[in-house]
Amino acid sequence: MKVGVFGGCFNPVHHGHLRLAVEALEILGLDRVELVPTAIPPHKGQRGLLPFGLRCRLVQKALHGLPGLHCSLVEGGRPGPSYTGDTLEELARAMPGSRLFFLLGVPDLLTLPSWKDGLALTRKAHFVAVARQDMALETTREFVRSHWPEADETVYPGWMKSPGNMVCEWRLGPGSGNILLIRPPYLDISATMIRDYWSAGRDIRFFLPDLVLAELTRKRRLVERYWAKQEARSDVGQVGGVKARPPRGGCIHGR
């Protein structure tokens, strides 16, 4: 079974996340995609971050009626920071024999050497870099060649003509997964923007599924306890708090 792994804070989950999950499912021919809310982000603070249980409920509601997409609670079952390597190992144990495809943005891929276990993580999963622009091919190619000079490269024809397909694949060698580059359509929606709209009392319909909006509204008092801090920080020149990074899924990356 081919399983996509798409992690992030999902604070909150929105249509940009869902579209990327659907694109990965189809472009890579996956059997399923696991959206993995992070419990304790190791590389950023938890200020403004909704409780893990609520974020998971929001993801579950967002996935209603979307076959092939699932919410994994794996990171909520262990203490300490939510490191990518630990998550990949747990998912591999839970789905023996599966091939894991870990989704991240090209800028996150470039920081891989600084992650916990760094480049060795490619032995636990294939890494799928998500491009926002055509130049990502050269950037990713340079990164791969600098760390895996013997990698075998395949560039797929027709990728420049339209988004929504595979761009390139690098086979890193025995014992390692591959690095793949895809270029799905990019929806310019971020969790930061949604939180800013919420704090300002603006309409956030069509940024996220109706069921997610309904749950946020139902939990308004709890949500405002966390997101109101975003507004407070804007008074000192930090509008919206920590920048969300849509195609990378946020917090699971860079760890």
Rank of each mutant, 00 (worst) to 15 (best):
S190Q: 08
Y197Q: 11
V13R: 00
R183E: 14
E90A: 15
P247C: 03
L222D: 01
V22Q: 14
H126D: 15
H17Y: 02
G76C: 12
N11P: 01
F6L: 08
H147D: 04
D108A: 15
R255D: 12
S234D: 11
D235H: 15
A191N: 05
T140A: 07
W148M: 05
V144T: 02
R145S: 13
R55P: 05
L109V: 04
R47D: 14
H17M: 02
K116T: 10
T38G: 15
S162P: 03
G68D: 05
E150R: 15
L91F: 05
K124L: 09
L121D: 05
L58M: 03
M160H: 10
R248D: 14
R205K: 13
Q230D: 14
A136M: 06
L187D: 02
L54C: 08
V5G: 03
L66G: 02
H147M: 07
K124Y: 08
D152G: 10
L69K: 09
T38R: 02
D134S: 13
H126P: 07
A120P: 04
L109M: 04
M193P: 00
C251R: 11
L110K: 02
F102N: 12
F52S: 10
A120K: 12
D188Y: 04
M135P: 09
L180C: 15
G80H: 07
L121Y: 05
D31W: 05
Y226W: 04
D108N: 14
H126V: 03
E142N: 12
L211K: 00
T217L: 11
V22M: 07
V130P: 09
H70A: 05
K243M: 14
E224F: 05
L20A: 09
Y156E: 10
A24P: 11
T140H: 07
M1R: 09
R47N: 11
E138L: 01
S82Q: 07
D235K: 15
G4F: 00
L208R: 00
I189E: 01
V74G: 12
G85A: 09
R145W: 10
L20Y: 01
L180R: 09
G85R: 06
C56T: 12
W159D: 07
D108W: 10
V74R: 13
G241R: 02
T111M: 12
F143G: 08
A92C: 06
R141F: 06
L69D: 01
N178S: 15
A129Y: 03
H253P: 07
D210T: 00
V155K: 08
K116W: 09
C56N: 06
L100F: 08
L119Q: 05
G175P: 00
G7S: 10
P12R: 03
R132L: 02
G250W: 02
P185T: 09
P209S: 01
A39K: 07
L88S: 04
G8S: 01
V239K: 12
L100V: 00
D108I: 09
L25C: 06
Q238F: 12
K116Y: 11
L103Q: 03
G249E: 05
G250Q: 02
G249T: 01
V223R: 01
V236C: 11
C251F: 13
G158W: 03
N165S: 15
A39Q: 09
E75C: 11
L121M: 06
V212I: 04
W115P: 04
C9G: 12
G68F: 04
